[in-house]
Design a protein around this nucleic acid. Sequence first.
RNA 1: GCGGAAGUAACUCAACGGUAGAGUGUCAGCCUUCCAAGCUGAAUGUUGCGGGUUCAAAUCCCGUCUUCCGCUCCA
Length: 528
Amino acid sequence: MSTSAPSATPGSSPAGGPKPMDAIMSLCKRRGFIFQASDIYGGINGFWDYGPLGAQLKKNLREAWWQDMIMNPCWGRKGPNGRRVECVPVETRIIQHPKVWEASGHVGGFNDPMVDCKETKGRYRYDHVMVFVPESGDAGDKPVFAYVGDQPSESKQKKKAEKTFGAVKSVALSSIPQPWTRVIAPEAEKPGTLTEPRMFNLMFDTIPGAIKDEANRAYLRPETAQGVFLQFKNVVDSSRVKIPFGIGNTGTSFRNEVTPRNYTFRSREFEQAELEFFCHPDESFKWYEFWRDFRMDWWKSIGLAGENLILREHAKDELSHYSVGTSDVEYRFPFTFPEFGELEGIAHRGNYDLTQHQKHSGAKLEYFDQERGELLPNGSKRGERYLPHCIEPAAGLDRGALAILCEAYTKDESRPSPEIMKFHPRIAPIKAAVFPLVNKDGMPEIAEKLYDAVRARFAKVGFVEFDEKQSIGKRYARMDEGGCPFCFTVDGQTATDQTVTVRDRDTGAQSRMAMDQVVKFLEDKLGV
RNA sequence: GCGGAAGUAACUCAACGGUAGAGUGUCAGCCUUCCAAGCUGAAUGUUGCGGGUUCAAAUCCCGUCUUCCGCUCCA
């Protein structure tokens, strides 16, 4: 039988609005994609675990990135220099020397309590803010004037304070009882615009070593990129790479997000897949465009095609201080709809990071390029010494997995199994399933044999399932929710002509094929 | 961080202050020759957690945690 109901468009609900996020989350829990971390203890804010299907889904995503970025970069596409793109991997640690994060700029004004001004949007270090009050210390109902030492606000506020009180003295903001309804912020006009002090400790910290000594404080990395810069010289010295080339790094990072929100989208622990591509400054912008375009194509290739994916070039005033160009690959999540949320940032970082680490570590990180410089009489080039520029495509694997889950979720009420996860076969955690149509007449035995063969061949890329329980309809439905793209069923005809049916998840349509063609069929469909 | 809403079985949800239930799923058996079909049965709950009020709390009160929504934040 062949039922091919019209399938809903992946990526949007039939009405064209956002898909129901609660239904997606419910399915993710029910089928073992995503669980809340420490669920039985009531959960922990900002942390999520993956269940059996989710773990394999994410592994497939990570593997796809590894293959297409490191082992066979850009599917063999030629770079702007007309040559093959070359990349190598590293695997660097979550914990590095604390000075790394000083050099990178991550340790700075963000580990101290800060107060914000609601009127001017100014932000001040709490312990730096002083206040002019009357000499007596009692301002009565009058406002008092906050300032920051050695800033224009100091003299300005002092004048105002003296006009109000006459003789004044200055005290720390922290000595004034909250709420600060009578405090006028440094650049503000109205009183009471300062928030209470807040800690912006973005980075998690820890103390390595058996003895707890503050002097040893180290941080859990907020990005994997820095590990690459730290090992740049070692990689160059040990692996015969030549500029231009990339170094990829994947792994867990931590950010103490102020407000974890939107399911796994803004988690405090998350996994990144980052490539740092080093090139000569003169060629850097071309490489930036190259990577920007490839990364967009890549996300499309694993199933995020459609209107839900966009490439957004950052405006000038949005750029980091070191970047001359940044683009985001963004996906229209149900919870951002109709806006988009970032999946990956492709940043031109110039030579900022290598410069910083060279300065802070004292190590020489320049690259000696023997293919550049004037031609010498002996036929070789003089060479050129420089700090390479860096293009950084930095993807969030958990965000990628979430986008894939959202994109795949399809509700089709016309199907007996209305909820279908339409994963791209390459990413699908379950690759195939084998069923006996009924649990008798020799069918289970034949099906087991087929299952063994398929599993032996494809277990390295995902689950291969065998299911003989309950009705065939329930088994198909289960596979639809798990996102298994192909189900092979042994039926009464199999014993006589060695054929089985293959059912397509997205259409429900079936066709018959020789049993010994099943492995070949899957090889083609799964691309392995 | 602020404001609002919610939290009961794996999922979706019921239950007047008075014995915690249903549907779905899961599991087992029977049946079954292609789509959550049928029959029979089973397991799963300190009602998020901790206090309080009460003879009695899923229910009322307080605290706390988590999730969702809106602000804020997102180096």
